[in-house]
Design a protein around this nucleic acid. Structure first.
Length: 436
RNA sequence: GACCCGUUCGUCUAUCGGUUAGGACUCCAGGUUUUCAUCCUGGCAAGAAGGGUUCGACUCCCUUACGGGUCGCCA
């Protein structure tokens, strides 16, 4: 069987991580079985559609690496792929329902007459679920054509899935109760229903429903925060799906091979940004230095830091220490400019050591006397100065770090000293000595 | 309210009747690093509750509680 899946967003807001995961699962399933992945824009609600939202869908999908075989820009044999352009198709299918007596007019709108019987669906994730349509109070006949002549979601969604020969519908659990309605429509058409798989929703960290304005909800925010698209794909795949192995870091290719609907969970998952950042760090480790530097550059520039000749070296010093590109500016600022703020806590810690003043002045003169500056020479000078003072060299590293970087954490000091050069190191040591 | 789905460490999860209930994130401790981070090792931490079924239940059944979803001329 030729697998055909689709992602059918409506352009009424930003692309949501929940929507992105739905798109991802459909994409993975189609790719895994060598089928087609269709992008269909469900823009039947003219009042709520926006161009920005449509653009956000395209950009989000492209950023995530989810290419579509049929849809806007791509074309295909089952177009058009905007529902707003499929009016004649819907009219034809609607006429069938009129002819067979499945619809009736009500206050200018048209309702579909449900068959009053239990309807059972065989969901690939939820299993067998039965809704009893004999209980009319809970399942009133649904409007499928509005009084203004436009068609409603349930109708166009079903018609398009049939027309586009969709074989598998993977969608959010919020559609679970819609499915028997859709099944009834398909039965009225005499069509063959696709297989359904309803995936659990994504919740906020506090367990509430994640909506568009919640942190982490908009896919478009991720590149701005310095996430790699692979990380986001990896992380959302893990929310509600599990490989049944202990591997957690996957690229898109690996996911395609290992993905299966059977391993989708039933319960909604909460969005943990901390873990998402950790996943990003793992992917960042695999990025080559040049690519990393290029990707980080816009963030560094946005922070108004000068991109000097030692930019690449500065990046190399911090590459494995950041979880997001957006953390890079703060991690390299002391390497790219001379006036930076000292971390108060680090400063206090230096002040707390009564020997700091003498120690810094010893270091200053030891460094100043070095003629051939190198990390080795600097360290040798440090060791010697420490020896004279009768202290352990290791204890001198912290104040030196604070002097050179302004904070308690940062790159290897050898690298820092080389990058800064002797004079800068001497100056910074004296500056810290004055501050304490 | 009615109807559906769900419920294992704080979070994401493994377990498909017999396990010291495993892994990951976070946090803590130790190691490595003369320093920081990475990294390595270890630790804290879980079967919602109550009934059954069974020699034996996290696993199967029922009830309750809690969470989520749906009940639109939104999608």
């Amino acid at each position: 069987m030729n697998v055909r899946t689709r992602f059918a967003p409506s352009p009424t807001g930003y692309l949501h991580v929940g929507g992105a995961r739905t798109a991802l699962f459909n994409w993975l399933f189609a790719r895994k079985y060598g089928g087609e992945f269709v992008l269909r824009i469900e823009d039947t609600d003219e009042a709520r559609n926006t161009d920005e939202a449509r653009q956000a869908i395209f950009e989000g999908m492209q950023w995530l690496g989810l290419d579509w075989d049929e849809g806007p820009e791509e074309g295909g044999n089952f177009g058009p792929y905007y529902q707003s352009q499929r009016r004649e198709i819907y009219d034809t299918w609607f006429a069938k329902l009129v002819a067979t007596g499945h619809v009736y007019e009500d206050a200018g709108a048209w309702r579909f007459r449900f068959e009053r019987k239990p309807v059972t669906m065989h969901d690939l994730v939820c299993g067998e679920v039965t809704i009893d349509y004999r209980d009319e109070s809970n399942t009133p006949d649904m409007v499928i054509k509005r009084s203004d002549g436009s068609y409603v979601f349930h109708f166009v969604n079903v018609v398009d899935d049939l027309e586009m020969q969709i074989t598998h519908v993977i969608r959010g659990e919020d559609h679970l109760m819609n499915t028997p309605k859709h099944l009834q429509l398909i039965e009225a058409f005499g069509g063959k229903a696709p297989q359904y798989a309803h995936i659990p929703l994504i919740l906020n960290p506090d367990g509430s429903k994640m909506s568009k304005r919640d942190a982490g909800a908009a896919v478009g925010d991720y590149p701005r925060q310095g996430f790699l698209s692979e990380s986001v794909v990896n992380f959302i795949a893990l929310l509600g799906w599990n490989s049944k192995t202990e591997q957690e870091i996957f690229n898109l290719t690996e996911l395609t091979q290992i993905f299966s609907l059977e391993n989708i969970n039933r319960s909604p998952g909460r969005f943990d940004l901390e873990k998402c950042k950790w996943v990003n760090q793992q992917h960042l480790h695999e990025v080559a230095l040049d690519d990393f530097a290029t990707a980080a550059r816009p963030f560094v520039e946005a922070a108004n830091l000068p991109i000097s000749d030692n930019y690449l070296a500065a990046i190399a010093a911090v590459k494995d220490k950041v979880r997001l590109f957006s953390e890079v500016p703060n991690a390299v600022n002391f390497l790219l400019k001379d006036n930076f703020d000292f971390d108060e806590q680090a400063l206090e810690k230096v002040r707390g050591n009564s020997a700091s003043k003498n120690l810094l002045s010893s270091l200053q003169s030891a460094f100043a006397s070095i003629t051939a500056w190198s990390a080795e020479a600097a360290k040798a000078a440090l060791n010697e100065a420490a020896l004279v003072a009768g202290a352990k060299p290791g204890q001198w590293m912290f104040p030196l770090r604070v002097a050179l970087t302004g904070r308690a954490h940062g790159p290897d000091l050898g690298e820092v000293m080389i990058l800064l050069g002797r004079d800068r190191c001497v100056t910074r040591i004296s500056q810290l000595a004055e501050k304490i």
